[in-house]
């Protein structure tokens, strides 16, 4: 589009008719393919949890739309029909009515219960960290992520930083058009690799300030807090292998906007191969990257 120079894919979805865009957009979103943001709604994602969340989100969204239609409808009706300029006379006897007030207290309560039940079910599911098959220790730094594999992949340990070309382009007055950079700001030098169909547990912590790890398609987000370890798990549905992207979502200083999360999901077989390759690489490497010092004084 002329204004933004956007690619064709996005051009079709533009327009200032915001309300219309929202409604039509959200319905279309249900059918959209995972792993490509449609630009205006959550995606169903590639894990059971993310799909559950998406369903909850849509359910609650439509409930709110429903309430809005009723409430705003009543308001608009009043605005049209009870106008002073049209000679409307106020019914000043209408001061209160215990009956309707009870009704409009109880109905929202019921609606809220309807929303809360599926939400509570999902929470229970999310909090069930049992039986994880692969654990990875994830440490946030200003401004990169460290991935230390445990369990069967013990020994694999690397940092993941914003990719070079994004990093050049994002400098102030770089003169590089971000649109020419593939996956601008969402690409790293070395992504985290995980197997599909496997319950992967992340043990999140941080070395300096609070960061947060998020991959929208997994419905997985959690803070990385210095001195504490938070748990987070996800299990990518088999068949949904691919590259998934997210970002640090807790303000962590100057380059908070520039510490993406990239996860490369492979089939368990491919993953095994990757692990073997990594392990031999680690053995061959003369200098193993030393584990960063864990100083007692986390703040200084």
């Amino acid at each position: 589009m002329s204004l933004t120079g956007m690619n064709v894919e996005h051009a079709g979805r533009r327009g200032l008719a915001l309300g219309a865009a929202l409604l039509s957009g959200l319905t279309a979103a249900g059918a959209a393919v995972a792993n490509t943001s449609n630009g205006y709604n959550l995606m169903p994602g590639v894990t059971d949890i993310s799909r559950d969340i998406y369903a909850l989100h849509m359910e609650v969204f439509w409930i709110c739309v429903g309430i809005a239609v009723v409430v705003f409808g009543a308001m608009i009706y009043s605005l049209i029909n009870f106008r002073h300029s049209q000679g409307a006379v106020a019914d000043t006897s209408m001061r209160h009515s215990t009956k309707v007030e009870i009704i409009w207290t109880i109905i929202p309560v019921i609606i809220l219960v309807v929303m809360a039940i599926p939400a509570a079910e999902i929470i229970l599911k999310m909090e069930d960290t049992r039986d994880s098959e692969l654990s990875i220790r994830v440490t946030g730094y200003q401004w990169k992520w460290q991935y230390q594999y445990m369990d069967a992949a013990e020994g694999i340990n690397f940092f993941s930083t914003l990719s070079q070309d994004s990093n050049f382009a994002r400098q102030l007055h770089s003169g590089i058009d971000p649109r020419t950079v593939p996956n601008y700001l969402l690409d790293v030098d070395k992504p985290m690799v995980v197997p599909s169909g496997t319950k992967v547990r992340l043990l999140l912590t941080s070395q300096d300030v609070i960061h947060a790890w998020w991959v929208p398609d997994f419905g997985a987000k959690r803070s990385a807090i210095p001195g504490f370890v938070n748990e987070l798990w996800f299990k990518v549905t088999p068949g949904k292998e691919g590259i998934y992207r997210g970002q640090c979502v807790a303000l962590c200083g100057r380059d908070h906007g520039f510490m993406p999360v990239v996860v490369d999901v492979r089939t368990p077989e491919e993953f095994k191969k990757w692990v073997e390759a990594q392990k031999t690489a680690v053995k061959q490497a003369a200098a193993i990257p030393p584990e960063p010092p864990r100083s007692a004084q986390l703040l200084n």
């Binding site: 220790r137 043990l203 912590t205 001195g227 504490f228 370890v229 938070n230 748990e231 864990r294 007692a296 004084q297 986390l298």
Partner: peptide
């Protein structure tokens, strides 16, 4: 937050009074 102990503060028992796992 059980992993806080397992991964970061192995030798800490969390008894009060305390000056923390780092014995600050």
């Amino acid at each position: 937050k059980i992993f806080s102990k397992l991964l970061l503060w192995k030798h800490y028992d969390g008894a009060w009074p305390t000056n923390g796992p780092g014995h600050v």
